[in-house]
Design a protein around this nucleic acid. Structure first.
Length: 584
DNA sequence: GCCGTTTTCGGCCCGACTGTTTTCAGTCG
């Protein structure tokens, strides 16, 4: 009981912060030279908490933390301490004994905890700036274990560190990866090439691009790879593995394997690490060994043949697990008893939702948007301009709405083609009421309600505000529920679980905003929404005709959240969609 | 730190590459 009260007291504590604290503990513990396994245990706990999301708070409430595999007595009590006080005494203590600069040094590639510790404790180098000074004077090369090359690498690493923080949007990374994979795929030596890693798993942010190629001549492939015109710097150049920085600044790693090893390498380098660990342990349980080169029975050195990833899963009596699901979040268990979802596909989308026209802050006219939607094969297009309160985006007033609806009626006169629907992205005002009164709102076919103001409200207020909008009977969809802008703006404080529960109770849909900077609702919560039978709406939030093609990213995230076609309202054919929303 | 059908001690995924060595430690994924 106590805990529940305490939880409210520190309501801004979320699972992400808890997981962050354990990441820190892992690093601190290595720097302070505790047992490396202790550090590994912290690291593991951090990943478990990250994957559990806010569920960890409920598990803590039920007092069942130690039932989670990887969390024992000590970590459980630390989690409780963080939830109750918002702090972790032992972490703060450790932090006090490590200079800030030492932590910053860890971000330099090729410097890990051991080297950083040595530089700090044995040579008194405790900041990136002082390390740079030492390198500039060629002092580092005189330290045992270092040489001229390390010195140059570290200087290059410091320069890169200053240039960018090292994370990329899924969409950006995908563009770079597609270009480079296309080049590599055209070489005679290459039989297959595929993007692997977190990019293939469609994480919303990625650190680098991982590629795997099948070839009989890895050496030649590596040589060509490091000499590609858009390679700016070579970090590693080996016979089967190389790492480079592309001119865009993103790191790109390439692995070359033989065609028979290719499915195993692809699986291995797609990850996630947690998924791989579990796959290995399943193999072990059945008397087999799985690694990036093959699957081996007993102590045999000869791999069992698998022509693709599906056969690897089959060998372990599992259904094929699509890459998006490989996060060790129940996919392996589901695959073992035929319970994986049949994921939604890009082609399943029949309507394009959440499109801004030149009636508010969009660039194109409704007729241009209609034409492009037709070209992309959509059956319907939901125009959603901003409402009057959002003056900064030229929100529509009542007169504009009348004019717009007349234009839409005219555009729909012709037979066939893409049907234009009358939508609005109405502002959720500070008190939770929705811009425009009921009469005006009911003139729209579909109402998306979104927050665009007063982002700094506290969690309870913001949650209540959005729930009030959900309970408004004119509202159909909640737009970009967290308001986050990846890499540039934090989400506003909301109790996402309560919001999903409210949507479930009121039969309202929640948007998966496909804009690459949003990808909001977060995929971790999509899984929960699906459990609560909440329908999702894949919106493009387009402000021009190009934006109509962004639905792809929304689909990727929907898949990552285990969604099937029927979970997504705009996978309905026009006839069903009109019927569902009583549109004439 | 965690964990246990090798269970309360003694393991803990593992392989490629680099830069430094002269057989290996550290980093990375």
């Amino acid at each position: 009981m106590n805990l529940i009260i305490e939880l409210e007291a520190s309501e801004n504590m979320d699972s992400l912060r808890i997981s962050e604290i354990f990441h820190e503990m892992a690093v601190f513990s290595e720097l302070l030279e505790e047992s490396p396994f202790k550090s590994r245990a912290y690291e593991k706990a951090a990943r478990i908490i990250e994957n559990l999301g806010d569920e960890i708070l409920e598990i803590a409430q039920r007092g069942e933390l130690t039932k989670v595999d990887g969390i024992g007595e000590k970590i459980a009590s630390k989690i409780k301490e963080i939830i109750e006080t918002g702090e972790l005494e032992s972490r703060n203590k450790m932090l006090l004994s490590i200079p800030d600069g030492v932590l910053e040094m860890l971000k330099i590639p090729s410097l890990g905890p051991k080297r950083v510790r040595g530089l700090w404790k044995d040579y008194g180098i405790s900041s990136v700036a002082s390390l740079k000074l030492v390198c500039d004077r060629h002092g580092l090369a005189k330290i045992p274990g270092y040489g001229a090359k390390m010195e140059r690498n570290i200087l290059a690493g410091i320069a890169m560190l200053r240039k960018n923080a090292g994370k990329w949007l899924l969409s950006e990374a995908w563009e770079f990866a597609s270009d480079i994979a296309k080049s590599i795929g055209s070489w005679d030596e290459v039989e297959s090439v595929k993007v692997a890693g977190s990019l293939r798993r469609r994480k919303e942010l990625v650190k680098d691009v991982d590629l795997v190629v099948a070839t009989q001549n890895p050496k030649a492939v590596m040589k060509k790879f490091v000499s590609l015109p858009f390679v700016e710097r070579v970090i590693q150049h080996g016979d089967t593995k190389s790492e480079v920085i592309l001119d865009s600044g993103i790191q790109c790693d390439l692995r070359a394997v033989s065609p028979s090893e290719y499915p195993f390498a692809l699986h291995h380098f797609t990850g996630s690490k947690e998924h791989n660990l579990k796959m290995r342990s399943i193999a072990k349980d059945s008397g087999m060994k799985l690694n990036e080169y093959g699957i081996f029975k007993g102590s045999s050195k000869k791999a069992l043949p698998c022509k693709d990833e599906a056969e690897i899963f089959k060998t372990l009596s599992l259904d094929y697990i699509p890459p998006e699901l490989r996060e060790d979040m129940g996919e392996i268990e589901a695959a073992s008893h035929g319970a994986l979802p049949k994921l939604i596909e890009e082609d399943d989308l029949k309507g394009v939702l959440h499109v801004h026209s030149n009636y508010s802050d969009g660039v194109n006219s409704i007729s241009e948007l209609k034409y492009e939607s037709e070209r992309l094969g959509y059956e319907y297009l939901l125009i959603c301009d901003h409402s009057k309160s959002l003056a900064i985006a030229n929100g529509m007033d009542e007169k504009d709405v009348v004019r717009q609806h007349q234009e839409i009626d005219r555009l729909n006169m012709g037979k066939g083609g893409c049907r234009v629907l009358k939508g609005i992205e109405a502002d959720i005002l500070g008190d939770g009421s929705v811009d425009f009164d009921g009469d005006m709102l009911s003139a729209f076919d579909i109402v998306i309600a979104s927050v665009h103001s007063k982002f700094k409200m506290d969690k309870t207020e913001m949650t209540d505000r959005i729930i009030r909008a959900i309970e408004n009977h004119d509202v159909d969809i909640i737009g970009h529920p967290s308001g986050r802008l990846l890499l540039s703006r934090e989400p506003y404080q909301i109790d996402t679980r309560k919001i999903i529960d409210a949507a479930s109770a009121n039969g309202k849909a929640i948007e998966i905003n496909s804009h690459p900077q949003r990808l909001d609702l977060d995929w971790r919560w999509i899984m929960y929404a699906r459990k609560k039978k909440v329908k999702l709406a894949i919106g493009v939030d387009a402000h021009d005709t190009f934006g109509l093609s962004l639905a792809k990213y929304g689909i990727w995230i929907a898949r990552k959240g285990w969604l099937e076609k029927d979970d997504v309202i705009n996978s309905m054919a026009i006839k069903d969609f009109l019927k569902r929303y009583s549109i004439k």
